[in-house]
Amino acid sequence: MATLASRIRLEDRECPLSTTVEHVGEWWTLLILHDAFDGYTRFDQFEENLGISSSMLTTRLKTLVADGLLERRPYQSHPVRYEYVLTELGRSLRPVIVALAAWGNARLAPEQRSMILVDANSGEEVEPVVVDARTGRRLDDSDAYVFAAGPAASPVMRSRYATRAQAPAPAD
């Protein structure tokens, strides 16, 4: 049986999208992170809220800790019990989770939405969008923004994006 690594193309190994999906693209992982953003930290909280088996939750939490997205901290000494707290790296995924939820909600009528994003002070619903930090322009215009090879791109990746604007090659 072929392993996942053997099915990944060379350019995917350097692609930031592929490497991100490798870390957070699994169903339970995204739901655990969502719960962590909602303040859940303890094994039993995740297990009860998600209805996930303890063995699957153990596996996913170990992976999230190994990937540096959650930190395992003792909160009780007799017996030792641990909580799982978002790291800075894990917290940096919040905009991704928000964007995924917004994408899902955009396909529903307002009365069909079971979860919405609101301003914490006013309670008013907000519409999340991804924008260029420099210009403030929305990035969902597929004609205005395209992927291009970056400075660390391999020859394979540069070839893939040869017809698009490219970042300069690194100096030798």
Rank of each mutant, 00 (worst) to 15 (best):
residue 123 G to H: 04
residue 106 A to S: 15
residue 83 E to R: 15
residue 158 R to N: 10
residue 126 V to P: 06
residue 148 A to I: 09
residue 171 A to E: 11
residue 67 D to H: 08
residue 105 N to Y: 05
residue 132 D to N: 15
residue 155 P to H: 10
residue 82 Y to S: 00
residue 117 L to K: 04
residue 115 M to I: 15
residue 128 P to R: 06
residue 166 Q to T: 11
residue 93 L to M: 15
residue 131 V to E: 07
residue 123 G to N: 08
residue 95 P to Y: 10
residue 119 D to L: 10
residue 93 L to R: 14
residue 115 M to H: 13
residue 82 Y to I: 01
residue 121 N to P: 01
residue 85 V to G: 01
residue 57 L to K: 05
residue 164 R to S: 03
residue 124 E to H: 13
residue 56 M to T: 10
residue 167 A to G: 10
residue 157 M to G: 03
residue 157 M to P: 01
residue 66 A to K: 13
residue 135 T to W: 14
residue 78 H to N: 13
residue 163 T to V: 07
residue 134 R to L: 14
residue 100 L to I: 15
residue 71 E to T: 09
residue 129 V to I: 14
residue 85 V to D: 01
residue 111 E to L: 04
residue 128 P to M: 05
residue 162 A to I: 02
residue 145 Y to D: 10
residue 120 A to E: 07
residue 141 D to W: 05
residue 80 V to C: 02
residue 82 Y to L: 00
residue 150 G to A: 12
residue 137 R to S: 13
residue 85 V to A: 08
residue 140 D to K: 13
residue 53 S to V: 01
residue 161 Y to I: 02
residue 86 L to R: 11
residue 148 A to F: 01
residue 97 I to K: 12
residue 92 S to K: 11
residue 63 T to N: 05
residue 126 V to I: 15
residue 123 G to L: 07
residue 168 P to K: 14
residue 161 Y to C: 04
residue 142 S to N: 06
